[in-house]
Deep mutational scan, measured.
Amino acid sequence: KLETFPLDVLVNTAAEDLPRGVDPSRKENHLSDEDFKAVFGMTRSAFANLPLWKQQNLKKEKGLF
């Protein structure tokens, strides 16, 4: 399991300012399950079932792209 970080560490943070080991294209993977659901309004599995373009739009909207 990946290390999780608080939302404010990941949202609207440039790649070079992210904690070590965080993939800038997969910031959402480093949210706790609770934060993930609070941000996206759905579970990880529901998010994973969305088309890629919709996932990317949601990530942009939430500052996690």
Rank of each mutant, 00 (worst) to 15 (best):
W53F: 10
G41F: 08
R44P: 05
F65W: 14
S32R: 08
E28K: 01
N57P: 00
D23Q: 04
M42C: 08
D33M: 06
D23E: 06
K37F: 15
L7Y: 15
G63Y: 04
Q56T: 13
A46I: 10
E3H: 10
Q56W: 09
T43S: 13
D23L: 03
S45H: 15
L58Y: 06
D17T: 07
F40A: 00
L31D: 01
G21M: 04
D33L: 07
A15L: 10
Q56S: 10
G41K: 11
A15H: 10
D33F: 05
P6C: 05
R20A: 15
E61P: 02
A46S: 11
S32Y: 04
D17L: 06
P19M: 01
V22S: 03
W53T: 10
F5H: 07
V11G: 03
T13S: 13
E61V: 09
P6G: 06
A48S: 12
D35Q: 05
E61G: 07
A15S: 13
K37A: 12
Q55H: 00
K62S: 10
N57S: 12
K59M: 03
A38K: 13
R44N: 04
A48Y: 14
S45P: 13
L64D: 02
T4M: 08
V22C: 06
G63I: 02
K27G: 03
E34C: 07
T4E: 06
V22P: 04
L50R: 00
R20V: 15
V39G: 01
A38R: 13
N12H: 09
K59R: 08
F5I: 07
K27T: 08
D33K: 05
D8S: 15
R26V: 05
L31S: 00
D35M: 04
V22L: 03
G63T: 01
Q56V: 14
K59Q: 03
S32W: 01
V22R: 02
E61A: 12
L7P: 06
V9R: 10
W53A: 12
L18F: 07
D33T: 06
F40G: 00
N57R: 14
P6F: 03
L18P: 06
L64P: 02
V11P: 02
K54T: 13
K62H: 13
L31V: 03
G41H: 13
Q55R: 10
F36I: 02
N49V: 14
L7H: 04
K59E: 02
K1E: 10
F47K: 00
F5S: 02
F65K: 06
L52M: 13
A46T: 13
E28G: 01
N57G: 12
D33Y: 06
Q56P: 00
A15D: 15
R26S: 09
E3L: 11
L58R: 03
S25H: 14
N57Y: 13
A14Y: 09
P6E: 06
M42S: 02
E3N: 10
L52C: 14
K27C: 05
N29H: 10
K54A: 12
F40D: 00
V9C: 10
S25G: 10
A15N: 15
L52A: 11
A14E: 09
L10T: 02
K27A: 06
N57L: 13
V22Q: 04
K37W: 15
K37P: 03
F36E: 00
Q55N: 00
A48W: 10
E3Q: 13
K59A: 04
K59T: 04
F65T: 12
F36Q: 00
P24G: 05
A48F: 09
A48V: 10
H30T: 02
Q56K: 11
E16V: 09
R20L: 15
D17R: 04
V11R: 09
K60R: 09
E61R: 08
D17A: 07
F40S: 00
T13K: 09
L10E: 01
L18C: 07
K60I: 14
N29L: 15
N49E: 14
E16K: 09
L18K: 02
W53P: 08
A46L: 10
F40L: 08
N49H: 11
Q56F: 09
R44F: 06
D8L: 08
K62T: 09
E34W: 08
F47L: 02
E34K: 13
K27L: 15
K62E: 05
N49W: 09
V11T: 09
L10S: 02
M42P: 00
F5P: 02
P24I: 07
P19D: 05
F65N: 12
K62R: 10
D17I: 01
L64Y: 03
P51L: 01
P19C: 06
F40C: 00
F5W: 13
E34T: 11
K37R: 14
P6S: 09
L58G: 00
A38P: 00
R44E: 03
R26D: 04
N12D: 09
K1H: 13
D17G: 07
H30I: 02
F40Q: 00
V11H: 04
E3P: 15
L2N: 11
M42E: 01
S45K: 11
F47I: 00
E61L: 11
W53S: 10
K37L: 14
A14H: 09
S25A: 15
G63N: 06
M42K: 01
S25D: 14
T43L: 11
N29D: 15
F5R: 02
L7C: 06
S45I: 13
D33V: 07
E16R: 06
L7S: 03
D35P: 00
L64V: 03
K62M: 08
N12R: 05
M42W: 02
L52H: 12
A15W: 12
F40R: 00
Q55C: 00
G21F: 05
R26F: 11
D17M: 05
R44K: 13
P6W: 03
W53V: 10
A48T: 11
F36S: 00
A38H: 11
L2K: 10
T43N: 13
P24M: 06
E16W: 05
T4L: 11
L64W: 04
L10V: 02
D8A: 13
L52P: 10
L52F: 11
L7A: 06
L50H: 03
L52I: 12
N57K: 13
L58W: 05
T43H: 09
N57V: 12
K60V: 14
T43D: 15
K27H: 02
D35W: 01
D8K: 10
F36W: 03
P6D: 07
A46G: 08
L7D: 02
L50K: 03
R44Y: 05
N57H: 13
V22G: 02
F40H: 00
L31Y: 01
E16P: 09
F40P: 00
E16A: 12
V22E: 05
M42Q: 04
E28T: 03
H30W: 11
T13F: 07
D35S: 06
K37G: 14
A15I: 14
N29F: 09
P24F: 04
D23C: 08
L64C: 03
M42H: 03
T43Y: 06
A14S: 12
P19I: 02
K60M: 12
V9P: 02
L52T: 13
N12P: 03
K1C: 13
K62P: 01
